[in-house]
């Protein structure tokens, strides 16, 4: 589904990603954890080319996104993204937020798109908010709308960039619940997160990134119970001590 080979990314003189290889199979849920500034979000943003990789190869659903012949807009429609700050469109209703992609990118008729949009809003429990505007929603509701918006393009994979980090603690659960539902339905997901409980329970594979490289990866239950990499041990120690 997604294949990353020897990915490097520098911002000016600062090398953030120092050679990452990652393969994600269809239907797999991969959680990426790591300290802030480790480059985990950058990896995610390279997959749909919101960041331009410096060198390396990224294949998404058979398309080499580095090739100039690849239409990046088509690839982006296949790789939905959910942002930390939601990034809903404030001038559109909730339903319009969800249907914009289907109408403009998938060339769906408005009535078909509305039907799809309402079905997806129902799925994330927000059908009754369809006619509201984003500013009338709580953070958790906004993020659920953002998930519906990315689902509306019927993507092959969804990239989650710290989807719960901007939420008040009591709103985290409702978002994770929706994500868990998606995972159960077989959606391919790559999730950059600080929610260790979610990673442990939902992920098929856990990846620990620090200093721009993958330091450790494996089955989440196994990795949490028995971390080998000293950096990961240190990181988990800091995270767990807060619980």
């Amino acid at each position: 589904m997604i294949e990353i080979k020897n990915l490097h990314k520098s911002f000016g003189n600062l090398e953030v990603i120092k050679g990452i290889d990652l393969k994600v199979e269809s239907g797999e849920v991969v959680c990426i954890i790591g300290p802030s500034g480790s480059g985990k979000s950058t990896v995610l943003r390279c997959i749909n080319k919101l960041e331009e990789p410096t060198t390396g190869t990224i294949i998404v659903d058979g398309h080499d996104i580095m090739a100039s012949s690849t239409n990046i807009n088509e690839v982006r429609a296949e790789a939905g993204m959910v942002f930390q700050q939601f990034n809903l469109f404030p001038h559109m209703t909730i339903l319009e937020n969800v249907t914009l992609g289907p109408i403009k990118v998938r060339k769906m008729s408005k009535s078909d798109a509305d039907e799809l949009g309402l079905r997806l809003l129902d799925k994330v429990g927000l059908k009754n908010k369809a006619r509201n505007y984003p500013e009338q929603l709580s953070g958790g509701q906004k993020q659920r709308v953002a998930i519906a918006r990315s689902l509306a393009l019927q993507p092959k994979v969804i990239l989650f960039d710290e989807p719960t980090s901007a939420l008040d603690p009591e709103l985290v659960g409702e978002v994770l619940e929706v994500m868990q539902k998606l995972a159960k339905e077989g959606m391919t997901m790559i999730v950059v997160t600080h929610e260790m409980g979610f990673a442990k329970e939902v992920a098929d594979r856990l990846i620990f990134i620090d200093e721009g490289i993958i330091q450790e990866e494996g089955d989440p239950v196994e990795v949490f119970a028995n971390p080998k990499n000293p950096r990961l041990k240190d990181f988990l120690g800091k995270v767990v001590s807060h619980i």
């Binding site: 807009n73 982006r76 992609g101 990118v105 990315s150």
Partner: peptide
């Protein structure tokens, strides 16, 4: 970024 991520040009 949100616009680009849903495949808009």
């Amino acid at each position: 970024e949100a616009g680009r991520s849903i495949g808009l040009t």
